[in-house]
Amino acid sequence: MHITYTAATTAAPDSPNEDFFAVGDGWALVLDGAGRYPGESGGCIHPVTWIVARLGLHLSSCLSQQPEQPLTTIVRSAVEATMADHGSTCDLSDPLSPGAAGAIVRIREDRIDWLVVGDCAVVIDQGPKGCTSVIDDRVDHLPNAPIVEGQVRTYSPAYVATVRNKPGGFWVLASSPDVAEHALVGMLPGHPAATRVLLCSDGISRLTERYGLSWQDVLALHDSTGPDSLIRAVREAERSDPEPQRWRGKRHDDATVVVMRVAEA
């Protein structure tokens, strides 16, 4: 089995890139920083870019050095290591402590494993069998969630503090190793189980969630002109959107995509 990788990432206009990606021997990951709410520090002195980079470093190390460990174990170890990196400067008990959404895929000879937390996505192309998509959309199905109207439509921080990393709420990789046990995990047996696997942040998945493309459309666009074309398509759709305020979340967001192509050796 031979795996090749293509990837692209870019920040939202006039912002630092709070996304992160990494690839290794049979694995790939994408992280999407879960930043601060207006007027809230989250008890942490570090920029979101620092948190995402540290978490990405620890996940990459664990995936490379512990290839037989379950992905939930790897995530737990990486979150614990990231928490230790904060030292005593940060109050990680704050429910609004910055963190990240994440997607991880590991491809072996006989299976594909995945783990998704927060609003990242994994899409597995099985050729004639079609695409299987894994998206953690629990943040979009919170009961009676109050939306604050402003420059960005979002949930109120006071409400988020009651449902973030809580049963019945939604989960992000931040300051609780137990999040690993609440991730969406799965496995696809058999070989060849897939021809391509796509991982992305929601800056890319909005092509399907907001702008009407299918995942087959997204993969076809990638195959024709590469991963950067997906980012260009996102920006064009965002700029052409006649009513961007109808969406919850930012008009523009950091956008990251990794595609793993699987072939016989």
Rank of each mutant, 00 (worst) to 15 (best):
L213R: 12
S61R: 09
A103C: 15
R210T: 00
E236G: 14
A183P: 10
S214N: 08
G190T: 00
V30F: 10
T4S: 13
R54V: 10
D119A: 06
L221A: 15
C120Y: 07
I231S: 00
A84F: 03
A28Q: 14
L59C: 04
D113G: 13
V160F: 02
A78W: 02
E236L: 15
Q216C: 15
S201K: 02
I104E: 10
I135K: 07
P13D: 03
P38I: 08
I3W: 02
D254S: 05
K250C: 06
K250A: 07
V117S: 11
D228Y: 09
C120W: 10
E18K: 06
S175M: 08
V123N: 12
K250H: 14
W247H: 11
G26M: 09
P242W: 00
G127I: 01
H141I: 11
P95S: 04
M187F: 13
G130V: 01
W114A: 12
S97T: 15
H222L: 10
A11L: 03
L115K: 11
G186S: 15
S61C: 08
W247L: 09
H182D: 06
E264I: 06
L29W: 14
G127T: 00
T4Q: 08
A161H: 06
A193W: 01
R153I: 02
E209Q: 12
A78Y: 01
S60K: 03
L55H: 05
L57F: 07
G33W: 05
V123Y: 10
H252G: 03
G186D: 09
A28M: 08
A22H: 04
G186V: 06
L219M: 04
G43Q: 15
T256G: 12
T49P: 07
Q126C: 10
Y37Q: 13
D125R: 01
I135S: 13
W27R: 11
L213V: 06
V52K: 02
T73P: 06
A265H: 05
P95A: 03
H86T: 10
A100Q: 00
D125L: 00
E149R: 13
G43Y: 10
T225N: 09
H58F: 03
H58I: 03
T73C: 09
A233G: 13
C44K: 08
R111W: 11
S201Q: 02
H222Q: 06
Q245P: 05
R246F: 00
E243C: 08
G150F: 00
